[in-house]
Computed example of a mutant assay.
Amino acid sequence: MMCKVQGYRGADFHTWAREATGITLEVVQRRDGGFRSTWARVGAPPPAVPLLAVVPRRWVVERMFAWLGRCRRLSKDYECLRICSENAIYLTMAMLLVHRLARPAN
């Protein structure tokens, strides 16, 4: 399984993710290097920076966050402990799965 993320560029995190979960991470960088504007020397033309660059499969992650945001408990950061937030995510995803399985087939 392969996952693309922008952050966590340290080698320690890559090693931990591969050993603990079996997931290989690929760091995705923006075309402009992460900066929305860049400096140019005096008299030099500014470098071309695309306003929108599509990152492959990022919509899948954004869609999942939207599904989680529909749950009232996860719409705000109410939880103090990480384990409570993780349990709320598991519960929300289980509820989504049950709702989809209970839906009549067309």
Rank of each mutant, 00 (worst) to 15 (best):
R57S: 06
W39Q: 10
A53Y: 09
N87D: 07
P47Q: 08
Y78T: 03
V55C: 06
R73Q: 09
F65V: 02
G22E: 03
P56T: 06
D77C: 04
K76T: 08
T21G: 01
L96R: 09
G33H: 05
R41L: 11
A88M: 13
S85M: 13
C71K: 02
F65Y: 11
A88T: 07
T24K: 13
D32G: 15
T24L: 08
I89D: 00
L51M: 11
Y90C: 11
R31F: 08
L97N: 11
G22K: 03
E79M: 03
M64T: 15
W39N: 06
A66R: 10
W59N: 06
I23M: 10
I23L: 15
Y78P: 00
E19I: 05
F35D: 14
L81K: 13
L68C: 02
E86W: 07
D77S: 08
R36D: 07
R30A: 14
P56A: 11
A44S: 08
T92H: 03
A44M: 07
K76D: 04
H99L: 14
V60G: 02
E26N: 11
R18V: 03
E79W: 01
R58T: 03
R31Q: 15
I23W: 08
R30S: 15
R82D: 07
D77H: 10
P56F: 03
A17D: 00
V55L: 12
V55R: 11
I83A: 12
Y78V: 03
L51N: 10
V98P: 00
D77A: 08
I23P: 00
V60R: 14
I23K: 04
R57E: 13
A48T: 10
I89V: 15
I83K: 13
V49T: 11
R82F: 10
R82K: 10
V27C: 10
Y78R: 09
S75F: 10
S75K: 07
A66H: 06
V49Q: 06
V28A: 14
T38R: 15
L52S: 10
C84K: 09
A88F: 13
G34P: 02
R70V: 02
T38S: 12
W59P: 00
R31H: 13
G34C: 05
W39M: 08
P46E: 11
V61P: 00
A66V: 04
L74W: 00
